[in-house]
Design a protein around this nucleic acid. Structure first.
Lengths: 122, 122
DNA sequence: CAGCAGCATTGACTCGCCTGCATATCGGCG
DNA sequence: CGCCGATATGCAGGCGAGTCAATGCTGCTG
């Protein structure tokens, strides 16, 4: 039940900030990034995000991607387990939508030097 | 040529912003993210960034990672070709350092809904 | 000049991932 | 109640990726 993203935002790790990153933290962050690092999945996120209600079902996504339905379901599963998508089944259809701040969280994890509290000063 | 990052920041693609992402853009962005989506490479970036002068040579990185020297060189090559690291050879040593705004650029590519009209009021 | 230290490259092995086909499951409809 | 449509899951093939041992290359150094 992972939503791997949630598991790593809790302890508030600082990936590329100050101290060298820990092995376990690196693996968690890499896991989430690995979910993003795929053309099909990036397009899925983009398609869902730009859909009418911000949501889309599998049948709407297979055609634009040019991939088979099982393959699309597979990618959606990867994204969901990574904590980037949430699934809601209404009737026969399964609607997917972006987890609100998920991607922004990843972006923040990559850019820690944005703050300037207590600078080292030369 | 390389520095895949530069090739995609030039045309100013909009990854997860408005219109559905194009296939070519998705593949470019996925390529850069794939370079990041590895525990060893994340740790390399972290180690280099937190090194004394913000730079480090291969011999300083093999031990903390617990990987062989060829493997470390391999990862450094991946990161360099992705545009995340820059290499400078001084004498026998090869010093690597982060490309200043590279990672921040990736983060920006992931967060389009953020206002970018004026200053960043953060 | 010969030897050595630091890195990069090659080859080989293994493992994981993307994809499609076939099949199972679930919900609605006639 | 049985059929059909929408998804999910299992299985298998193929390709790319991570790792290491061995080797080549370059620039100090004695």
């Amino acid at each position: 039940m992972g939503t791997a993203l949630a598991e790593m935002t809790m302890p508030q790790i600082s990936p590329l900030g100050g101290e060298p990153i820990e092995r376990a933290d690196a693996e968690r962050l890499a896991g989430v990034l690995k979910a993003l690092a795929d053309p099909a999945r990036l397009r899925l996120l983009s398609l869902i995000q730009s859909a009418p209600e911000g949501e889309a079902c599998v049948c709407d996504l297979t055609a634009p991607l040019g991939l088979s339905q099982p393959t699309v379901s597979h990618h959606l599963r990867i994204l969901t387990e990574a904590g980037l998508l949430e699934r809601e089944k209404r009737g026969v259809w399964a609607y997917y939508r972006l987890v609100p701040t998920a991607i922004a969280t990843i972006a923040d994890l990559l850019t820690p030097p944005r703050k300037r509290a207590g600078k080292k000063a030369r």
